[in-house]
Design a protein around this nucleic acid. Structure first.
Length: 722
DNA sequence: CACCGAATTTTTTTT
DNA sequence: AAATTCGGTG
């Protein structure tokens, strides 16, 4: 066997299947890669292989990932393998790459130069404004529903023009809103996330010259997390790969957890139909977890019916059992987790080797409090990210207005932030004037500041604002980006505004603002140097919202949602909040399809663990300020007993803090002890049923032989069957 | 127009 | 529980 350096780097320590994937001849390839089976390794080695062995230029490769984090990581690994920088390579998220395409060909794509990307927050804001313009009541037409409708259709590649007139009034109205929304986006020269995909797709499918150009350039297309692609993304991939058919897709149907945002696992099946010559390679050997953890996870996922089917195995040791802990309430759960982390760290293990996972970001709170109290450094991923914070977005809006006066969304955002006497009334006038003259808010405001329509006071305020932006622009011209940002924060009055506010929150805001200039300095615009740095920075901020907390280099306990944990691994994992209603989430318990996605999420969570896995649940959980009695997650019951060990509350003899006295004196509690989820009850009219859920003491949700309804305990005269 | 307190309402997950 | 929105007052 040839043992030159290349084969060491590229093929060493690969198993047969991995090696087969890395070294496969060109053509459509589908890699079904189970959790921990070395998927990223195969992907990075494949790219290195193409460059080193097949003499492909890195520029001939299009590599698509799902998250920015994954993209960064992969780039780093490839550069380590190759030993040189691949900064020009087309590697990134679907959205990032689409953005790059649209920047390059904005004119062909029907966008004006300097178009702006809006995040979902801005999108919702815009939809609200449209509803107002259409004279629609937000109560009757919830903006969120419209947003969901619009994004859903875009993800399927449908424009308003593609939608039929609907018979149902609701749908017809939503269609109209979508149409208005699209007009507004065009007018404002803004692009939302879904639009990035859709428009770049249209650009290539309608422009043959460009399509051929890129097909020629990208001789190899690779995609990670293929199971999470939606209809438009899959179609987008095919646009590039249809000619040479060198599409290398890596995915795992058992880890498809983005169905709620349009992802289609079926793409894995369609792949083999669309590319009949597809070679399928399965990676089933797991290198990550102990046998116990792996078998338990396999047992859970086996309850899903809709699977391609695969069985992960490991040569590794059995390991210790999965520890299950039933906490009294969420604080007790946090205390328990903290205790175990302290023990673990006390044994000399790094904090960064343990992760606390939860279904929804709101659950991080209790853990954060416990960790803060104990002085344990931690880091929260997800949730509200740096560039999504209000104060940061305010500052960015000033910058945007400075760089392009016609950005109406930026204008709306900062015209009265900090307060400068331009309120709703004045803005109504400005909006009306802008509409009448078909111009931007900025120029309408400029006119009004001169004219006589407004009260002198309002006109003066507008004039001052106008001056302010012009001054910032003049004074920062030619400065480096970092200093532009710094100066804007100061001159805009944002810094002073938050400084005046003595509250703790304002202090944190000020700190965040102080970090923005250095974020700008660290920003190296990777794409084409075509746009001006400020514009690039602003779009970067939207597209890559940034991590939540700084201090990445400190050794920290990791807190994150199950969704953001995908692709990661930790020696010690806590899977928390294992309660029915929370996980699986209430909304996803009825529909089997949705329940299966929840189960896959559970599978993802369990398979993050390398050596030790804890699964915890609380018997009482606070949610929206109310206490709920809960039942252990059905997923817990799916973990075979032979792999688990129940942990008892150590050092605690009495149950946790007694319920507040007020609660006990409130009536109807003679049966409240028995009235808990799982109890059998009899109702005069509905007969016998099972309590599913309780809301405080007052309401119960009961399943009467499939007839599920909410009842008031005080009124329903339920009797608990002993 | 701004400010304050009351009322109302939370969709899980992310680009 | 918290955050945002609403409505009334100064």
């Amino acid at each position: 066997m040839n043992h030159d350096r290349d084969s060491d780097i590229l093929a060493d320590s690969l198993n047969a299947a991995q090696r087969e994937a890395v070294e496969a001849p060109p053509g459509p390839l589908l890699i079904l890669a189970g959790a921990g089976s070395g998927k990223t390794r195969v992907l990075t080695r494949r790219i290195a292989w193409l460059v080193r062995r097949c003499d492909e230029s890195p520029l001939a490769i299009l590599a698509v990932t799902f998250t920015n984090k994954a993209s960064r990581e992969m780039r780093g690994r490839i550069e380590r393998l190759l030993g040189f920088s691949v900064s020009g390579m087309w590697m990134g998220t679907f959205h990032g790459l689409s953005h790059r395409l649209l920047r390059r060909h904005s004119e062909e794509a029907g966008l004006r130069e300097g178009f702006e990307i809006v995040d979902s927050d801005d999108q919702l804001r815009l939809i609200r404004r449209i509803l107002r313009d259409m004279n629609l009541d937000e109560k009757q037409w919830p903006p969120r529903q419209a947003q969901w409708f619009i994004n859903g259709h875009k993800e399927e590649g449908r424009r308003p023009a593609d939608l039929q007139r609907a018979d149902r009034p609701l749908e017809e109205q939503l269609r109209r809103i979508y149409r208005e929304y699209e007009n507004a986006c065009r007018r404002l020269n803004v692009v939302d996330f879904a639009e990035l995909m859709l428009r770049s797709h249209e650009l290539l499918s309608q422009n043959e010259t460009l399509r051929e150009h890129y097909r020629e350039q990208f001789r190899h297309v690779l995609v990670d997390e293929f199971q999470d692609t939606n209809a438009i993304q899959y179609s987008w991939l095919k646009l590039f790969a249809a000619g040479h058919k060198n599409l290398f897709a890596v995915g795992d149907d058992d880890q498809s957890i983005y169905g709620w945002r349009g992802a289609r696992v079926e793409n894995i099946l369609r792949f083999q139909q669309d590319f009949p010559a597809t070679r399928v390679i399965r990676l089933e050997q797991n290198y990550r977890s102990t046998a116990v953890i792996l078998k338990a996870a396999n047992a859970v996922i086996a309850n899903n019916r809709k699977r391609l089917g695969k069985n992960l195995w490991t040569e590794g040791e059995a390991g210790v059992p999965i520890r299950v802990y039933a906490a009294f309430n969420d604080n007790d759960e946090a205390r328990f987790v903290l205790g175990r982390i302290q023990k673990w760290v006390g044994q000399g293990n790094p904090r960064s080797a343990c992760a606390v996972l939860y279904r929804s970001n709101a659950q991080s709170r209790a853990f954060e409090e416990a960790l803060v109290d104990a002085g344990m450094p931690y880091r929260v991923y997800g949730g509200l990210r740096f560039f999504e914070r209000a104060e940061i977005k305010d500052a960015l809006a000033y910058l945007r207005l400075v760089s392009s006066r016609d950005s109406d969304s930026a204008f709306e955002r900062v015209v009265n932030m900090p307060p400068r006497g331009i309120g709703g009334r004045t803005m109504e006038e400005v909006r009306a004037a802008a509409k009448a003259q078909n111009c931007s808010l900025w120029s309408a405001a400029a006119d009004l500041a001169q004219g006589r329509q407004l009260t002198p006071r309002a006109a003066h305020a507008l004039h001052r604002f106008h001056e302010l932006i012009e001054t910032i622009n003049r004074d920062t011209a030619g400065l480096p980006l970092e200093e532009v940002v710094e100066a804007t924060i100061q001159m805009s009055g944002l810094a002073a505004h938050h400084k005046n506010d003595q509250s703790e929150r304002a202090e944190a805001r000020l700190e965040n603002l102080a970090e923005l200039p250095s974020a700008a300095r660290n920003f190296t615009h990777d794409g084409d140097a075509e746009a001006e740095p400020l514009v690039e920075f602003l779009n970067h901020a939207t597209l890559e919202a940034g991590e939540t907390q700084a201090g990445e280099w400190e050794d920290c306990v990791q807190l994150m949602s199950l969704h953001s944990a995908k692709g990661l691994e930790f020696p010690l994992v806590f899977l928390t909040g294992m309660e029915d209603g929370l996980f699986p989430h209430q909304r996803n318990t009825e529909d089997p399809m949705l329940l299966e996605e929840e189960r896959r999420l559970c599978y993802v969570g369990m398979t993050r663990a390398m050596r030790m896995l804890y699964m915890t649940h609380a018997e009482v959980r606070r949610l929206h300020g109310r206490e709920h009695c809960t039942m252990p997650s059905r997923f817990l019951a799916e973990v075979p007993e032979e792999f688990t060990e129940h942990v008892r509350a150590a050092g605690r003899t009495s149950p946790p803090p007694p319920p507040s006295p007020a609660k006990w004196t409130a009536g109807h509690n003679w049966h409240s002890a028995a009235m808990r989820p799982g109890a059998r009850v009899v109702h005069k009219k509905f007969g016998e049923g099972t309590v599913l859920q309780m809301e405080g003491e007052a309401k119960v949700r009961v399943n009467f032989k499939g007839n599920i309804r909410w009842l008031m305990v005080a009124l329903a005269k339920l009797e608990v069957v002993k």
